[in-house]
């Protein structure tokens, strides 16, 4: 594993494995102190989910398909949310993460307007929990107050924790199961999500990315980026869903 300066965190999402179970969604809410999404929050279209499962319909009964795709912050290399922030609350750190600094944020919501992936969420209310439920809150993660923008951080607190522990023990940080992994990756029962360092050629994500992207457009290249034509250079690589009945390659 390379030094902190040279790391570039990324994720590979295999949508052929994803079943749309929402395991990642709940894991994220538990890890990141996301306020309870109450009924009225859904009705106002203001529910917060840093990672979400989108479901798309195709076709009509009986030849109907439902397709699932997990979408989280794509940690763009060329992020549309960053230059619009007047207070540098969102910026790029040197590990390739697109970072949100809560105590700088003044809530202009320009970043949310700029984000083509709609993965930024605004706290329209002061987050509330009954007292006893507050016992569950993760002490490593700030509770965001009203008027603050928030989004997926690739569980930066877990990255920091692993780094700190590795430094303490004088060992290299490992990615994968036993080392650094965001809550969603850790939970995913089908191993649809894989996390790691794209700058480390030996990491699993690098190998997967290399295999997926080098054969792009060819038959066995399954890799693609969401809304790639926007030039956002995302650090999340998706692997295409395999559909026996697709015949030819869709979507190109």
């Amino acid at each position: 594993m390379a030094d902190s300066q040279d790391r570039k965190w990324g994720m590979v999402v295999d949508i052929d494995r994803c079943t749309g179970c929402n395991g990642c969604v709940i894991a994220c809410q538990s890890e990141n102190n996301i306020p309870n999404n109450l009924e009225e929050h859904f009705n106002q279209r203001r529910a917060i989910q840093w990672i979400r499962i989108e479901r798309y319909w195709e076709g009509e009964y009986p030849n109907v398909k439902a397709r699932f795709i997990p979408v989280m912050c794509q940690q763009c290399g060329n992020a549309p949310c960053e230059p619009v922030c007047p207070v540098y609350a969102t910026y790029h750190n040197n590990e390739g993460l697109n970072v949100q600094v809560y105590n700088r944020c003044i809530g202009t919501r320009f970043c949310a307007n700029g984000c083509p992936y709609h993965v930024r969420f605004f706290n329209f209310w002061e987050p509330e929990w009954p007292d006893s439920l507050k016992n569950q809150l993760n002490p490593d993660v700030t509770v965001r107050s009203r008027g603050i923008m928030e989004k997926c951080s690739f569980c930066v607190q877990r990255i920091r924790r692993s780094t700190r522990e590795a430094d303490r023990d004088g060992v290299q940080v490992e990615d994968g199961d036993r080392g650094i992994s965001p809550a969603c990756v850790n939970a995913c029962p089908t191993t649809s999500l894989t996390f790691g360092d794209f700058n480390d050629e030996t990491s699993q994500v690098s190998i997967m990315k290399e295999e997926a992207m080098s054969n792009r457009g060819k038959k066995d290249g399954r890799g693609y980026r969401l809304l790639d034509n926007l030039g956002t250079e995302t650090n999340v690589i998706y692997l295409k869903k395999v559909d026996e009945s697709a015949g030819a390659v869709h979507g190109h």
């Binding site: 979400r52 989108e54 798309y56 795709i69 390659v249």
Partner: peptide, 18 residues
Amino acid sequence: TVPEFPRDEHNHVIELTS
């Protein structure tokens, strides 16, 4: 809750392969 991704020949969300 979030707008659906635009779907046209340039923008694809869920890509399929045979």
